[in-house]
Structure formats: structure tokens, C-alpha cells
Simulated scan of single mutants.
Amino acid sequence: MQLTARAIDQRVGFRKACTISAIGRIAEILPLPGGAMVRGAALVRAGAGWGESAMIISLTAVLTLSMAAALAGVPLIMSGGNLGYIVFTAGAAGALMSAGWMIRRSGIGVTVAMLVSRIAIIALGVVHIDVAFNAIGVDVKIIDAALFVVASSLGGSLSIVPAGIGLSEAIAAALAMLVDIPSGAAFLAVAIVRMCSLAVNGLVATLAGIGERQLTEERRHVKD
């Protein structure tokens, strides 16, 4: 969230960025782009225009999805299918185009930081998926776990149903057949990751809300 703000020459504090990110994740349970709306509203409050806020949020979403798709192409290539080359090429092209636009708009420094943060997010997503598979007793290669990160990203990007509920899992189940992983296990692993993410972000958003209310009350007492 902080990098997104910096990309359009705005500033958001670390605490507020954490709060907004958590609330944005919770808002994605709505059958509309709730997360994007929360982040966009936060950028507008920071001083950005609605147009540039929508633009940078869309751009970062495309960048993340493209990078996840490029990574997902690797296990597909290793499985011997031509689909992997198509997915990898499309993902890499999307990531390069997004990064190129961001360099022109925000400079190399912000772009590199954005790419590094996206790599970290995707890597953490791979670890989450791998742990979820292990939790249900299914052993998968770490590179195969990378395939299902794109399922979560793609399902979450489609807001025709609340948070893509069932959609990410269905995509994961379909992709699992391409790498000889049980479809039911992939469905369940992605569902576990989703539920854990909502629970953690819900806790963060609740604690942040309590902290913000206490801070507001303290400021009111000081003024009085």
C-alpha cells in the first residue's frame, strides 16, 4: 500500500497502510471489487485523484497477476505441455509492460521496490499453498505449489461472486490435473489458504479499528 501511494507521489503511513491492506482483503468477500475500492478511497484521502488511484491499483493488480502467471508457467513447462510456454510468455509480457509503464510514471526506484514486494508476496503465497497441501497430507513439489498461486490471484480478481468463492478453488482443481495432483486436494488447499487469510486479516482489521478508536478518544481528551 505504501509503494502504491509512492508510485503516484503520495504518502501513507505504515500503520495506516497495514490497516487499509487488511480491511481491503476483508472487503473482497463482497461481490464487487471491494479491496480495490478501499485502497482507492485511501489514496484519494491521501491526496490522489480518483483517476490516478484507479489506474495505479489496476496496474499493480495486473503486475501481480502477470508475475504469478509467469511463475505458474514453469511447472506447466516441466510437465511437458505447450500450454506452459503460452502461460509463461503471456505472464512475462504482461509483467514487462506493467513494469515499463511504471518506470515511466514513477521511476526505477519505485518500480524495483514494487517488483521486489510482488516477488515476496508471490513467494509467500507459494509457501502458504505448500503448507496447506502438507496439512492435508498431500506431498507436492514446491515448484508445483507455485501453479496454484495464480489460481488464487485470478479468482480474487473476478468479483462476480463474493471474493471469487469457489472460483479460485475450481481453477486450482482444473490446473491440478495438468501436473498430476489430485483435484480435490488442490481445491481444499486453496480453500484453506483463503480461510486463513480472511481470519488473519479480520483480526488485524479488528485490532486496528480498536487502536484507531482509542487514539481518537485520546486526542479528544487532549483537546478538552
Rank of each mutant, 00 (worst) to 15 (best):
M1P: 02
M1C: 07
Q2W: 13
T4N: 15
T4W: 14
D9P: 01
R11G: 00
G13H: 08
F14T: 09
R15G: 15
K16M: 07
K16S: 09
K16I: 14
I20K: 12
A22N: 08
I23W: 06
G24L: 01
I29P: 02
L30Q: 08
L30K: 11
L30H: 10
G35V: 00
G35E: 00
R45T: 13
A48P: 04
A48M: 05
A48I: 04
G49M: 10
G49Y: 03
G51M: 07
S53E: 01
S53T: 03
I57L: 11
S58Q: 14
S58I: 10
V62T: 09
V62M: 11
L63E: 06
S66K: 09
A69G: 13
A69S: 09
A69I: 05
A70M: 11
L71F: 02
L71I: 09
V74L: 05
I77Y: 05
M78T: 08
M78S: 14
G81P: 05
G81W: 08
G81R: 15
G81L: 12
N82T: 15
N82I: 11
Y85N: 10
Y85Q: 13
T89N: 10
T89Q: 05
A93P: 04
G94K: 07
A99E: 13
M102F: 15
I103C: 12
G107P: 14
V110A: 14
T111K: 07
T111V: 06
V112K: 08
M114I: 11
S117R: 14
R118A: 10
I121Q: 10
I122M: 10
G125V: 06
V127P: 01
V127D: 04
H128Y: 15
I129C: 04
I129V: 12
F133H: 06
A135Y: 06
D139F: 00
V140W: 02
K141H: 05
I143C: 03
D144L: 02
D144M: 01
A145T: 05
A145H: 02
A145N: 00
F148P: 00
F148T: 02
A151Q: 03
S153Y: 07
L154D: 02
L154A: 11
G155K: 10
G156Y: 04
S157W: 06
V161H: 00
V161A: 05
A163P: 00
I165N: 00
L167N: 01
L167H: 06
S168D: 01
S168Y: 04
E169Q: 07
E169N: 00
A170P: 01
A173K: 15
A174S: 05
L178S: 15
P182W: 01
S183Q: 05
G184V: 15
A185Y: 05
A185K: 10
A186R: 02
A186Y: 12
L188Y: 04
A191R: 06
I192G: 15
V193M: 07
S197F: 12
V200M: 14
V200G: 02
N201A: 13
G211C: 09
Q214F: 13
L215Q: 12
T216F: 11
T216E: 15
E217H: 10
R220F: 07
D224K: 07
D224Y: 09
